[in-house]
Write a protein that binds this DNA or RNA. Structure first.
Lengths: 191, 191
DNA sequence: CACAAAAATCTAGCGCTGCTAGAATAATGT
DNA sequence: ACATTATTCTAGCAGCGCTAGATTTTTGTG
């Protein structure tokens, strides 16, 4: 009976996603330190060991949230870039990046701050991550070494701004001017 | 008897520093997740409750390591800036910043990544932190709004580079060119 | 020096964590 | 209808941050 196996696998995949969604919701509402195996098991209405049937450990669950978040961000960067004229591509992508970080702080943390097993600049780098990086590069132009370098650099700057803002280490107040200045600097990039 | 009290206070201060140093060493050698009250108490050869006579909780111990690290970094930024010609001030400070982050990753984490009660852009901002920020501003020139904004921005960029490098999220390979590019961008800053 | 008061320190334990072995239950194929 | 297999749960381990209360050490006084 093939359909029985298929149904089981489908239900398993559904529960897999359920765990990821529950972990993400819990993290966004109460912070990652509140995402414990017991609370998460409670939320998905299974016992703790079921979680371990889907993920090796809690870190793997966080990584799954990270990948999901990266895919979402890639999509939002793409939409923002395509909606803007080419001359405003960098600004559109930067704004969308910071908006995502502010709107989904816990997901953002899983993506770029918490320890992770996700491979970033590597042969095994997951497709959504490549896509997100590609969107930043595209804001500068075709995918070449120079634009990739600019993309890495502005990513670093945006990430720094995002986390220092989030933790209150730089003030929210002048954020708009700060972003304007960043974009102006990158617009004047020497060849 | 005044001397007895004085001696007690001196010994207490010594032990206070001993705890900070032990926590920092443990964090640098085994990571912050290994800095537990039990291991730390073991290392300083006291029982756990003694730690709580000096610090409210583990977070306060991390914050103490953070402040110590910030003071050290401020000193190293100052030394680097003063040793370089004014035209190379920004490069000197950037290089020293990234060198500190690479040399003391656990301290750096306590300073700028882990949750903290340390006030950054605030009336209660501790002196060493003001000093460190002041060093970055000085690399750009006198302390005015524009140079402060540039300092905040390049701090964000450096921090982003530091943490993304540390976690393997951007490759070590092109780091030198990346830094050159960053400095070039800031050198071309519009008025 | 002897001894009560005060200060310093430790032992032991609470409720939590991530994780897992083995028991109990449910679904499956004959 | 029943044995087999797959699934899920109960119960527990070792370690976590933190603290109440017992114990030891130090202090100041007669």
């Amino acid at each position: 009976m093939v359909t029985a196996t298929e149904r089981r696998e489908r239900q398993r995949a559904e529960r897999h996603q359920l765990i990821i969604t529950a972990a993400r919701e819990l993290a966004e509402s109460e912070g990652w330190e509140a995402v414990t195996t017991r609370k998460l098991a409670d939320k998905v209405e299974y016992s703790q060991p079921v979680l371990y049937g889907h993920f090796a450990n809690m870190e793997a669950i966080r990584d799954a949230v990270a990948i999901e978040g990266i895919a979402e961000m890639a999509e939002q960067l793409r939409a923002a870039r395509e909606a803007a004229p080419a001359s405003e591509g960098v600004r559109a992508v930067c704004t969308a990046y910071l908006a995502f970080a502010a709107a989904h702080p816990a997901a953002y943390q899983a993506m770029f701050t918490l320890p992770t097993k996700v491979k970033f600049a590597h042969a095994e780098t997951p497709a959504p991550l490549r896509a997100a990086f590609g969107e930043i590069v595209s804001a500068f132009g075709p995918f070449d070494d120079r634009n990739a370098a600019l993309a890495e650099l502005i990513w670093g700057s945006l990430h720094g701004m995002a986390v220092l803002l989030r933790s209150g280490r730089i003030p929210e107040a002048a954020q708009e001017q700060r972003l304007d200045l960043l974009i102006a600097l990158f617009a004047n990039a020497p060849a």
